[in-house]
């Protein structure tokens, strides 16, 4: 990694792809939801996940509580898909991952979709599905 994901000093010079890389590194790879949100999420972040209120601080409260209650909570990234124009200031990113609250559980398959604009994550959608015990194919959900 050739960047410090907590360094926001050059925020206005970063491309949407660079912001996404930093956020995903902190939130998904390091499971550090607090640092990820404080560094990269805009205060007016528009939330589309039905379980969280809109806004950075309101969402962070929900996420930080989940982390406190589940110290093994982890996001295991499977693939990241970038939209067009990510070398400019605005674009969309998709993160397909396995979210687990404890190491032993199957957890959820999740796709996070984020809109990045001018150095911030400004909008978030997601779809979450519990990973079932059995499947009709041998390929896993991932």
């Amino acid at each position: 990694m050739d960047f410090d994901p907590r360094d926001t000093s050059g925020r206005e010079t970063l491309s949407a792809r660079q912001v996404a890389e930093r956020f995903v590194e902190l939130f998904h790879h390091q499971d550090n939801v607090v640092d990820a949100f404080n560094a990269w999420v805009h205060p007016d972040y528009i939330q589309h996940n039905p379980n969280a209120p809109s806004g950075r601080d309101a969402t962070l409260e929900v996420l930080a509580a989940a982390v406190r209650n589940n110290p093994e909570l982890t996001h295991d990234v499977k693939r990241v898909i970038y939209g067009e124009g990510m070398d400019g200031p605005e674009g969309m990113v998709v993160v397909h991952h396995n979210f687990r609250r404890t190491r032993g559980e199957r957890g959820w398959a999740v796709v996070d979709i984020m809109r990045i604009k001018d150095g911030y994550v400004v909008e978030h959608w997601d779809v979450m599905q519990e990973v079932p015990e059995t499947a009709k194919n041998a390929n896993s959900m991932f």
Partner: peptide, 19 residues
Amino acid sequence: HWDVTQRVPESSANPNGMF
């Protein structure tokens, strides 16, 4: 092909809809 599917719930903590 991979997918993730979730029923849209009746109520939400925000007014923005899932889309």
